[in-house]
């Protein structure tokens, strides 16, 4: 999110990031965000989470209705991992794997996280596999989050990624439009 904002041309007071842990809580709190966005502009970013075929379906089901002009609700297709995979060269170099192993259109992949794991499994560094790929019975490896955050903050080429991930490109555009207003 920090990178998205910077790329979209955000320059202002450091914003406050709130992490809600789950789509359902965003859905529940939608009215609250609507109210609060009159005080501080809100950008709410969520993902499709495999329950909905496309963003309009989610809008319908959540009964989003009319949003105040100071609130932006954006939906990342599938998972945030897809956007990171979209920088093919970058992620391959970061994970010490061959770029060909990374899918060229990550947003059409059904489960981006599993795809990411399979890329890591082909990494030349054994250590990365141990750190990031989960044991059976876990969802992620112990250092998965730390490594991916490091990548997202310091290595991820957001422009390259936007070329491969249409939803990322769209979101960037909308966020920078929103920031301008």
């Amino acid at each position: 999110m920090q990178r998205l904002l910077r790329q979209a041309g955000y320059a202002g007071n450091p914003p406050t990031f709130r992490i809600t842990h789950g789509n359902s809580s965003i859905r529940k709190n939608l009215d609250k965000y609507k109210g609060a966005s009159r005080i501080i502009p809100h950008i709410v970013l969520t993902d499709l989470d495999r329950c909905y075929p496309c963003p309009p379906a989610l809008f319908d089901d959540w009964r989003v209705g009319v949003l105040p002009p100071s609130m932006l609700l954006r939906i990342a297709v599938r998972e945030v991992e897809a956007w990171l995979l979209a920088d093919r060269k970058g992620i391959a170099a970061f994970l010490h794997a061959a770029p060909e192993k990374v899918p060229s259109l990550p947003e059409s992949v059904d489960d981006p996280k599993q795809t990411l794991f399979s890329v890591i499994r082909k990494s030349r560094k054994r250590r990365l596999v141990e750190e990031m790929v989960p044991q059976r019975g876990a969802h992620i490896g112990p250092l998965y989050n730390d490594r991916m955050c490091d990548f997202a903050l310091n290595y991820w080429q957001i422009k390259t990624a936007a070329e491969n991930a249409p939803s990322l490109a769209r979101n960037l555009l909308r966020i920078s439009d929103f920031l301008r207003d």
């Binding site: 991992e81 989050n145 955050c149």
Partner: peptide, 16 residues
């Protein structure tokens, strides 16, 4: 959220 160190925010971006 304002009392958390900056880096920690990013940690939970990736849902398990």
């Amino acid at each position: 959220p304002k009392t958390k160190p900056a880096q920690v925010h990013q940690l939970s971006l990736f849902k398990p």
